[in-house]
Write a protein that binds this DNA or RNA. Structure first.
Lengths: 228, 228
DNA sequence: GAAGTAAAATGAGTACACTCATCTTTTACG
DNA sequence: CGTAAAAGATGAGTGTACTCATTTTACTTC
């Protein structure tokens, strides 16, 4: 018998794969649209600056309707913020993948991280202020500050905490705790804002400040000055 | 002859005084208008918050035309900033008039100043973030950040410089220079942002942080740690 | 006073970020 | 295939900060 029984027609043979993995037209076009928006926004922000670029222009350049932009980003600021999120995450990922940096002592780590981060966000200098600094203000019912701005900052602080804990274990520095994380984050902010206003060639003043600050900071850390 | 010559009639007898001092209807009404705007704004900001208060409402409440508001303040943010400017100046004035504070050692001075400042800006907590933090970003052609925001920060830094120079002379601490001023300003910013997010009773956490930070900072200062 | 000028007030108008009811495309499933 | 439901795109509409040409008011000078 040549297996006359009809096999029941497979219903969507790649089902399990499809539902889980296959991109699908929708998902793909969604990605594309988002990419188009980001590309258009970056080009315009770069050319005219954040404030002089209108969302209408971005939509036009991305060849989408005005409203569509807001399906992808809650506000114009959120759109700008996306670049910083990506870069920060990129730096964090880089850190966890590079054995050499991970093995280095804390100040070297920090120097490398900061330098890398500043390098990456260089193209966005003009609008960093409009967006990033807002993470410092508290969120309240009265304040429409988007949650994502704060999440960026929280992610940053978590990473700092990890770095410090690692250093405490491996390098035997005294615990610095909650306040240490806050202080380091503040120092980082100071560097970024200094860098923002730094007009020197190749931002060398910022690099000098960073170097100096890390040297001093390192001494303090090892002495446990905080506990005095 | 009984001196028949007529004295020439004095032309505007109070002339010199009038042109220089007398308020005049115009100047007076200008002051009044500004005061009306500030009063209305403060009331509304306090009740509904900065973002949910419209300039239209403020004008209505102040009984002026919408446009008039912008004759007095370039932007809504500038209007809000006015409160901080006033309070900062008030603190600086207070310092220079209070012999007791001036005679105190640096950490006590700083503690008193910061505490006073935080006390004063307490009513404006909700909108400080919308305004004050912007002073950190650089000014460029592309960025409409009002000059006044930066001036506030500059005035702050000048005052810090004065305090440090005084302490160098009177208390014999090693010179801390440009970076010292910047660092102290950054520390101050850190306190303010911590305070903004501080939910503890009477902001006691902030006070504890401030105390601790000043103790540590003072040790560092006296050791000249910066020069290591 | 009257006439002229400068300061200040006015409010209709503009630009722009963002919303939302409706329409279009994709997917699920017989 | 056909149909229904869900996801996504659309763009006219809305609210609001801010502008500006015009009008009103205060001051100056004769």
């Amino acid at each position: 018998m040549a297996t006359p029984t009809k096999r029941p027609a497979r219903k969507r043979p790649t089902s399990s794969r499809t539902t889980k993995k296959a991109p699908g037209k929708r998902a793909k076009s969604k990605e594309q649209t988002k990419a188009k928006i980001l590309k258009a926004a970056l080009a315009l922000f770069g050319k005219k600056g954040f404030h002089k670029t209108t969302t209408k222009e971005i939509s036009r350049r991305a060849r989408i309707a005005e409203g569509t932009l807001f399906n992808y980003f809650k506000t114009k600021e959120d759109l700008a913020l996306y670049f910083f999120e990506t870069e920060l995450q990129g730096c964090i990922d880089w850190y966890y993948q590079d054995d050499y940096v991970q093995a280095a002592p804390l100040p070297e780590k920090l120097f490398a991280m900061v330098q890398r981060y500043l390098d990456r966000i260089e193209p966005y200098q003009e609008f960093i202020g409009a967006v990033y600094l807002r993470a410092l203000q508290p969120r309240s019912k009265l304040n429409p500050l988007s949650l994502e701005v704060q999440e960026l900052r929280i992610r940053e602080l978590k990473f700092i905490r990890d770095l410090l804990e690692e250093a405490e274990e491996k390098e035997g520095i005294p615990p610095f705790g909650e306040f240490g994380v806050y202080a380091l984050g503040l120092g980082f902010l100071g560097i970024v804002t200094y860098w923002l206003n730094d007009r020197s060639d190749g931002k060398e003043n910022t690099m000098a400040l960073l170097d100096r600050a890390l040297t001093v900071g390192n001494s303090l850390l090892r002495q446990g000055v905080w506990e005095w």
